[in-house]
Design a protein around this nucleic acid. Sequence first.
DNA 1: AGTATTTGACCTTA
DNA 2: TAAGGTCAAATACT
Length: 328
Amino acid sequence: MEETTKRKRDSIINELVHGKELANQLSNHIILSSNETNEFLIDKIISTYQKALTMLNVGDGKMKDSHSSFTNESPKSEVIIDQEFNHNALFKKRKSMPKWKEQVKICTNTGLSEGSLDDEYSWRKYGQKDILGAKFSRGYYRCTHRNGQGCLATKQVQRSDEDPTIIEVTYRGRHTCTHSQAKPLKREFPSKLKLKIKGLEKNKLHNDIKNQLQTKGTSFTSKAELDVKRKDLEETKEDIFPWFSFPSPSIGSENEIMMESNFFNLSEYQLGYTGLCQNGPTSESDITDTVSAPTSVTNSPILDLDILLQRGDFDTDFPLNTPEYFSS
DNA sequence: AGTATTTGACCTTA
DNA sequence: TAAGGTCAAATACT
């Protein structure tokens, strides 16, 4: 082997060994905080270093044989054992991950599927199973950023047997992806249900909205309010909805929390949005329910429709629950 | 073509 | 050993 190649190789090995040592030190520090996801990621980092060193035939971070490296004699058995170890470790980690359950009530007139429930994270379906004794199959979802950012959050979605309008969602693991952290708060202006307004000028739209809302009454919010009856298993409120500021615990009882999703109020009319219900209130009871729902959300931003229209925010996308404006 | 979903097979757990 | 959970190839969608 040439002298320069040997020197290069040695410095690579030194870097890898150093990196692994640092990861080990980090592990010892973080392990005290018992964050399972962090632990898992650290394990992965260390194992990556270990694999690289093993492939260089360096063994446990120590330079064993500086002569047989860069050959094709990779210690396959070690790698296989390592992979098996990681596989088992992965299952153990998953088992010990924090887990909690929510029940989300959806409106009956929506054709949206369980998977389209908008909880502000992006999920990718990876499986579906028929569950013994259950009428509806269970869907398995993982965070979209699992591969890119190693986010291990998963959720299981299943329609309730007793009440098909209730979706039971079981979350497992916290999101570690930066994407989800950066996503807008639930109460900010939604982007998902885009309203396609064809051939309507802003002013006409504005007037139409006014007229319709005045006809229906002074105000309404969408039927978007999610009855989130949360059953804590292991988590605190803040852990489950880190983006959401919960109202005082006086609402509801037995740890049940009613969430209302009238995301924002417009000065003349209250408009709501939902990722669950596209058709808005369809009956008197819907409206009544909505109006009588606890108006505990006081931190909703107050926006004026005129300003929003002038700003062009709703040029073509306007999240009203007014059926006439939905294209689908 | 790239991304998401479906679905049968495989793996783990109780 | 059966049921639940995950993988990954095939398929669908955009």
